[in-house]
Design a protein around this nucleic acid. Structure first.
Lengths: 352, 352
DNA sequence: CTTGTTTGCACAATCGATGGTGCAAAGACT
DNA sequence: AGTCTTTGCACCATCGATTGTGCAAACAAG
């Protein structure tokens, strides 16, 4: 409480205290003072005052003037999911290391909401926007384009700007093959015993399904249409699909390709209503990685998407001048059952 | 591309187009026009122009003038964890419904980083700050206090402003009791067979430990000090603790109270290196809920903290004028093994 | 027709930082 | 001593919206 306890110091305050003009103070504190030939001693004085008065620049004012805000946005479908929250965590680290401020917002996979959210971010003059898992990336693109905002797609591709996405076809192949190979030669999996649940008509699902079908044909010789059940991404619609299958067939398929961890939660909900033992010999492949899921009582093979790789690539690409709208594929990783991988959290120090 | 493709329309543009003054345009578009006695027809004309030119206010300018930004901040330890990402998801929904913009940032449980992050958010003139799981809430408080920023603590309490936290003592008791009661009368759990792993010297851990010890004394008649092993929150330090215990005793304790899902990941890492069968009769209680963890091959009893309840309460409290720095306890919920609960995602529509 | 009131809006200062431009004082040079 | 350069900084417009104030025109009252 030694001084002005309630209001933040401005360059005008420091200007009075230092006897210099506001522009001099500004130049000193934003680093352009050499260019403006400010004396070292003047600069030192001002830096000193800034320190003792805890000056920090008002970013709204700076942003208004310079039409840049220092904010970098990440548009996510949802937060509470390991995949997307890893995105957020990794993104944040990258943005912070560039000395900017991350702003992470979700838009619920709703195209309308996606555009509105982008508009909102734009009204804060964000400097760049990373569009992750958007249902309508090109819709968001329109919004960004009209104001000249740099942007890039992640996870789901658009057609107007570069996209950095998982190699879902390859991942789908890897996962399908790994599932099939778990079955011994004397009790091989039949083509009609391996089902794919979840996902919807988006690029990622389509590619995974393409990989799934290709490998089934190659290894199992057949690929019945009925084995593909896109349920959307909501856990409960997935649960209902499992419920319906079980109702009709008295059991689950011998092996499942589950399209995402959120869909996998639908499987859990289904299982909660049925005795444990019914699923003792089920084999599951899940396109997403979750450490706990990896240790479930039946074999769970997972795909871990390379979040760090995607974010890193996305930052590289967005820095390029006028990049082509091409798609950059990042290879995912197959994770065998009972595997506990490290994640972004391990990079943090723990001051236990 | 019909019009000004590159720059956003401002009130000055609309002012020229409509033949009114900028202040009139401003008043019409921010809703204060009745107070300023603007004719309905004038207002209609301006609204119309705004619509066709896709006008949206520059929030930096507005914020600069009104020293409010429409941003509400949430300071988190980390993103990629179900508990905190649920916080983010729930927080976002609340903020959005108030017509404001959420800004969620993590600070890695580092007191220094927490303060710096708060400073940064303040430089954007955020309107309120929710401090969640901060290692040093009172440090962040100082920062907020000097600029008169409304703030509140969640998950970990501070002493200067109200805090909304889980009832960790009660939760610790519930979980401990549930663990103990899982053992049959003929093979009861002994006091030296139930260990607590994880957490550190923060309010939440202390309260949970207090509940743990109280119930052990009440039900098991004893409470050996050696059964408490705070390992910090990093998964790997927890893993090492399990490793060390196993090394020394040739097995894990019969029952574990694991302080958080992040610590639980440490247990998984430990398990990955050992044969499955070694843990067939392990009983685990975990203070956090994760649907996949709930279905692991050994009984896992979990505590789900009431994230929705905490956020709701926090918004209530922060709206009050000068609230007392008291602690509001929100009861958590005990979750039996093999339970798949719904979460914030279920509130979203899925346009599958 | 004059005075008083209401209606409808324009004007201008302001928020805090930025950056182009101008200009006095100090130093260099002939 | 007079001219030219360099140094060191102040001045001021600007970004876009908000808001207190003032004032003409329209209308009402007497």
């Amino acid at each position: 409480m030694t001084k002005t306890s309630k209001k933040k110091a401005t360059i005008y305050d420091l200007s009075v205290l230092s006897g210099s003009s506001p522009s001099t103070v500004s130049a000193v504190l934003n680093g352009t003072w050499q260019k403006r030939r400010i004396k070292e001693s003047t600069a030192a004085l001002i830096r000193d005052l800034a320190e003792t008065h805890q000056y920090t620049a008002n970013r709204q004012a700076r942003g208004l003037r310079s039409s840049r805000s220092g904010l970098i946005g990440l548009l996510l479908p949802v937060h509470d999911n390991r995949y997307f929250s890893s995105m957020a965590q990794t993104f944040e680290a990258h943005v912070r290391s560039k000395g900017q401020c991350p702003i992470v917002v979700s838009a619920s996979r709703d195209p309308e909401e996606e555009r509105r959210t982008a508009e909102t971010l734009i009204s804060y003059s964000i400097d760049e926007l990373f569009i992750c898992g958007a249902t309508d990336p090109d819709g968001v693109h329109e919004v960004c384009e009209t104001v000249g905002l740099k942007h890039i797609n992640i996870d789901l591709p658009g057609t107007k700007v570069p996209s950095v996405i998982s190699d879902n076809y390859e991942g789908g192949r890897m996962l399908t093959e790994a599932i099939i190979r778990r079955f011994p030669a004397d009790q091989p999996l039949r083509a009609d015993e391996l089902y794919l649940f979840g996902g919807r008509d988006d690029h990622a699902s389509r590619e995974r399904i393409r990989g799934f079908r290709a490998v089934k044909r190659e290894l199992l010789g057949d690929d019945p249409d009925g084995c593909i059940l896109p349920t959307g991404y909501a856990p409960n619609t997935a649960r209902l699909a499992f419920e319906a299958f079980y109702e009709k067939n008295g059991k689950l398929p011998r092996a499942l390709f589950v399209n995402s961890s959120i869909n996998f939660e639908g499987l859990l909900r289904f299982m909660a209503g049925h005795p444990h033992e019914n699923f003792a010999d089920l084999t599951v492949g899940c396109y997403d990685y979750d450490p706990f899921a990896s240790f479930l009582p039946f074999p769970v093979i997972m795909i871990r998407q390379d979040v760090e790789g995607m974010i890193t690539k996305a930052f590289e690409v967005i820095e390029e001048g006028r990049p082509q709208p091409r798609i950059h594929l990042i290879s995912p990783e197959l994770v065998q059952p009972r595997t506990a991988l490290t994640g972004p959290l391990d990079a943090l120090k723990d001051i236990g």
